[in-house]
């Protein structure tokens, strides 16, 4: 039967001592839109929930030698941030398409990433923005690139005594345009069949200076399509080049059949949406 304690510490130090005290019995809860569902579906039966919602100082979006987003920042805050919309567009695309307004009002980006679903809508964007995850534990902070954060479905490098406190996004993203496509059957309340994020740095002469491609739901973790990125670098921004990049990216994915979509379809859609998102990213960069 559902029976657990709920503790809402006011400082991160208290979080650490509570985690130490309760050990494996404890589960961290941020917005709770995954944790509460898992409890309801009996995939999770914690002895105690330790809420991070007392850590209001972890809710922020700012730009100061790079972009900094607190781990407790809600998707709704990202959606409503002009800074995110204009300079980290892919993240805006991803955050705005999560669930519903009700979900976005409480669900946090830290929670979305720590939950580590292969379908997380902010994962692809953070990958192509080259974001770094800041984890804090009793011994201090450590930084892990998002690309190295996920280890499998629902698993990450985060230790059980650590809290995701921040995302650091390099300043040079201001030279990139970025976009994220959530391919889903419905326009809201859905999980992606496939997520494609692209960030592009384009020279005025339409030469691709740098490209980053993030794919979700096509492997056990969200992945970067590194070969496709390499292929694009130095090439001219042309339809045939983008199509080829899509084909290469598709070959880097290992999608599977599921009730949500067929593997072949996901593979095909990578070919379609890598070019489309590259174009949108370029458009946002103002080059085309």
């Amino acid at each position: 039967m559902l029976n657990y304690d709920y503790i809402k510490p006011e400082s991160i130090k208290d979080v650490f001592s509570l985690l130490k005290e309760y050990g494996a019995e404890a589960t961290l809860i941020a917005g709770g839109t995954d944790v509460m569902v898992n409890i309801r579906n009996r995939k999770l039966s914690p002895g105690v929930l330790i809420s991070l919602r007392g850590l209001m100082d972890l809710q922020y979006i700012n730009k100061n030698k790079g972009y900094h987003i607190g781990g407790m920042t809600t998707h709704r805050m990202l959606e409503q941030s002009e800074l995110v919309k204009n300079e980290l567009s892919a993240l805006h695309d991803g955050a705005s398409r999560v669930g519903s307004v009700q979900i976005r009002n409480v669900a946090t980006i830290g929670g979305n990433i720590c939950n580590a679903a292969p379908s997380a809508d902010t994962a692809g964007p953070l990958l192509v923005l080259d974001a770094v995850v800041v984890l804090e534990g009793p011994e201090g902070k450590r930084k892990i690139p998002v690309a190295e954060f996920f280890t499998g479905p629902s698993t990450t490098v985060r230790r059980e005594d650590e809290v995701l406190v921040e995302f650091d996004i390099p300043e040079d993203n201001s030279r990139y345009g970025s976009a994220y496509w959530k391919h889903s059957r419905r326009k809201a309340m859905d999980l992606p069949i496939l997520g494609v994020a692209v960030a592009l740095n384009l020279a005025e002469d339409r030469t691709i200076v740098d490209a980053r491609i993030g794919l979700s739901v096509v492997a056990p973790t969200p992945i970067r399509a590194l070969r496709a990125e390499e292929y694009l670098k130095g090439k001219s921004f042309r339809e045939d080049v983008l199509l080829e990049a899509g084909r290469i990216a598709s070959s880097e994915a290992s999608p599977r059949d599921s009730i949500r979509g067929k593997a072949w379809y996901r593979g095909d859609m990578i070919k379609v949406f890598v070019p489309r998102m590259a174009k949108l990213a370029a458009e946002r960069r103002g080059v085309i």
């Binding site: 839109t33 809420s51 519903s100």
Partner: peptide
């Protein structure tokens, strides 16, 4: 001021 799904809103958070 914000719409939320009360079915997944933990009651202790309402304090």
């Amino acid at each position: 001021g914000d719409a939320v799904n009360s079915c997944i809103f933990p009651i202790p958070e309402i304090e």
